[in-house]
Simulated assay, not measured.
Amino acid sequence: MTTTPASPALMNSVFTTEDKEKFRTLRITHLAAKFEELIIDESNDHLTPEQIFLAAVDDALDQRRVKNIQKLLLAAQLPIMRASIAEIHYQEGRNITPARMARYAAHDWANETANLLITSPTGGGKTYIACAIAVAACHNEHKVFYTRMDELARRLVIARGDGIAHQALLNRLSDADLLIIDDFLTVGIDPEAANDLFAILANREHRAATMIASQTGPAYWASALPDRIAADSIVNRLANNARTINLGDIDMRRHQGEQTRAAPGYWE
Score class of each variant (00 low, 15 high):
2 T>M: 14
14 V>P: 03
14 V>F: 06
17 T>V: 14
20 K>E: 09
20 K>V: 02
29 T>V: 11
31 L>K: 06
31 L>P: 02
32 A>D: 05
33 A>V: 12
34 K>H: 09
39 I>P: 00
43 S>Y: 09
43 S>E: 10
46 H>D: 13
51 Q>V: 02
53 F>S: 06
57 V>T: 02
58 D>T: 08
58 D>V: 06
59 D>I: 06
59 D>S: 10
61 L>H: 15
64 R>S: 14
69 I>C: 02
73 L>R: 03
82 R>M: 13
83 A>I: 00
89 H>D: 14
96 I>T: 07
103 R>H: 12
104 Y>P: 01
110 A>K: 13
112 E>H: 15
119 T>I: 10
121 P>I: 04
121 P>V: 08
123 G>K: 02
125 G>E: 07
125 G>L: 05
128 Y>N: 05
128 Y>G: 08
134 A>N: 02
135 V>Q: 08
137 A>F: 07
141 E>K: 10
141 E>M: 12
145 F>K: 08
152 L>W: 06
155 R>D: 15
156 L>D: 03
160 R>A: 12
164 I>W: 11
171 N>M: 13
172 R>C: 01
177 D>Y: 03
180 I>R: 06
180 I>A: 08
180 I>N: 06
181 I>P: 01
184 F>W: 04
184 F>Q: 01
188 G>I: 05
190 D>F: 09
191 P>Y: 06
193 A>I: 02
200 I>A: 03
205 E>K: 09
210 T>C: 06
212 I>A: 04
218 P>R: 03
220 Y>I: 09
222 A>R: 12
225 L>G: 00
229 I>K: 13
230 A>E: 03
230 A>W: 00
232 D>S: 14
236 N>K: 11
237 R>M: 08
243 R>T: 11
245 I>W: 01
246 N>W: 10
249 D>E: 11
249 D>W: 06
255 H>F: 15
259 Q>S: 10
261 R>G: 04
266 Y>F: 15
266 Y>Q: 09
